[in-house]
Simulated scan of single mutants.
Amino acid sequence: MRKAREVLVIGGNRYFGKRLIARLLAAGDRVTVLNRGSSAPPPGVTHLVADRSDEKSLTAALGSRTFDAVVDQVCYTPRQAEIARRVFTGRTRRYVLTSTVEVYEYEDSIAPVRETDVDPLGVAVDLELPWYDPEFLDTNYGEGKRQAEAVLAAGPDFPYAAVRVAHVLGGDDDFTGRMTHYANRIRAGEPIAVPVVNHPATYIHVEEIADFLFWAVGQDFTGPVNAASHGRLTTEDLCDAIAAHIPDGKAVFRHVEVGEVSPLSFTRAYGMDNSRAVRLGFRFTPVRQWLPKAVAETLGKEG
C-alpha cells in the first residue's frame, strides 16, 4: 500500500488546479491548499491563507509544516520565485512549478522546441522590473515564467521541476473564452483573422495536464519538462472542429499581414517536443483524438 504524501498546492482552485487536487485526494494524499482566501478550497484539504508574494505572510502561514511535494500554480515572477526558494528550501523534497510554453516566445524554430532550447541557467534575471504592476506582468507573462525558472534553477540544492504547459483546452469551466469567441464568429458568419503564415501549436487537454502534474509529483526528475499532447493544430484545425459542433457551421478566415489576429493564432511556431516526458514514462494522447470532446465540453449544447 502506497504511503500517503504531504502535498502543498499553492493556488489551484480552478481549472486544471482543482482537478489536480481531486486526483491527489483520491490517491489518499494529505493535501494542503494555500491561497489568499478569496475562494474556498474543496472539501478534504487543509486550508492556509497567505499572500505568497509576502515572505513573512507565507512563512507565518506555513509554520513548521514540511511537505513531500509542493505544486506551485501561481508563481509568475522571479521575485515570487526567490521567496519560494528561500521559504521552501529544506521544507520540501520536491517543488513543481507550473510553467508555460510561453517561455519559448523568443525562440525562432519551425521544429518543435526542446527543453534545452531555453536553459534556465542561461536566463538573465532582473528583479527591478515592475513585476508588481499587473499590466506589465500580463504583457510579460512568458518572461516572468522564464525568470522564475531561472531563480529556482540557481539554487543548487533546490529540488525543482518546471512543467512547461502547452495551451490547455477542454472542460466546461474553461475561463479563457477562446473557443466561445470562435463559436460566436462562426455562428455569425464573421471572418476569423489569422496571420498570412499561421503556424501550428501544441495543446493539451485539461484532464491530461492534471494527470501530468499528478504524475510529476511522484517522480524524481528535475529541471524543465514539456507537457503537450502528441501532434499540433493550426487555428484553422481548431475552428473546423468547432464548426463541426455547430449546425450548418462554417469557419471563414481572413488572412492579415499586419494587425490584430484571433486568439491561438501564431506568427511563429509554438510546437513543443514532448520526448523528454515520454522517456520519463508519461503517456500522452494524440491531440486530434480528444479535440472533438474538448469542443463539446466547452461549448456544451451551444450550436
Rank of each mutant, 00 (worst) to 15 (best):
C75M: 09
L291S: 11
E115A: 01
R185S: 02
E143W: 09
A61N: 12
R268H: 13
P286A: 06
F266D: 07
E102N: 14
V256S: 01
K293W: 01
L291P: 10
D119P: 00
V33P: 08
E260M: 01
N184P: 00
T202E: 07
A69T: 09
Y132R: 11
G142H: 07
T139F: 02
V87D: 12
T222S: 13
H245N: 05
R5T: 14
K250C: 12
I110M: 01
V165C: 12
E149C: 02
I21R: 13
P43R: 03
G28I: 12
G37F: 07
H230F: 01
H167R: 09
D220H: 06
G44T: 02
V71F: 00
E135C: 04
M272L: 13
D29P: 02
R185L: 12
L24K: 10
K145S: 09
D173I: 02
L62A: 13
K250N: 11
E135N: 11
A241I: 10
I192W: 07
T180E: 15
A241D: 09
A27M: 13
D237L: 01
A243P: 09
T32A: 13
G177S: 08
T32G: 08
K3G: 08
V9P: 12
T92Y: 08
R254T: 03
D126S: 13
V31F: 05
P120V: 08
A69V: 03
P191R: 04
